[in-house]
Amino acid sequence: MTNIKLLKLLSKNARYTVSELAVMAGMTETEVENDIKELENSGLIRGYKAVIDWESLDNAYVSALIELKVIPQDKYGFEKVAETIMKYSEVESVYLMSGAYDLCVIVKGKTFQEVAMFVAKELATIHEVTSTATHFVLRRYKELDVELVNSENDDRGTYSLC
């Protein structure tokens, strides 16, 4: 059975050690190690990354959300186009959407210019792509469950002691 408990803990903090995870999930360390291996091998866990507040650095990168309208292909629908787009290293995420457009692509680059050029040269020129709309991210407030602005202080008083 898939160990949802471990997945939840790791999705909160991928750097918990095996012994910490064992305590938190009420398992032995060997069980934790085996389950993680299994989750990785089966492809349920695809990677581990830090959540970084890049904007606090001078050489912050910029990113944009690109709406793409796409003509679905016979047999493949949107799959082939999506798979082509996701191969670019500039592309962070690709989603198939319901609603007014088809593919949502998150693109990152060093400058606005660089991202705009990537959209114009690479995405807009794909044969099945009929239109693009580029929305630049101006500020990040929260990413992957982590708040990036003004963290809350513990302002609890001593009233609840007893």
Binding site: E152, D154, R156, G157, T158, S160, L161, C162
Partner: peptide, 27 residues
């Protein structure tokens, strides 16, 4: 409550780490 006084001292000390309060930390 005698404890309250004790914790008022604690809250005026620097670098104190508390496991005292009985109210949730979640907003």
């Amino acid at each position: 409550s005698g404890i309250r006084k004790f914790f008022d001292i604690a809250s005026n000390m620097d670098g104190v780490i508390s496991l005292g309060v009985g109210e949730p930390d979640f907003p």
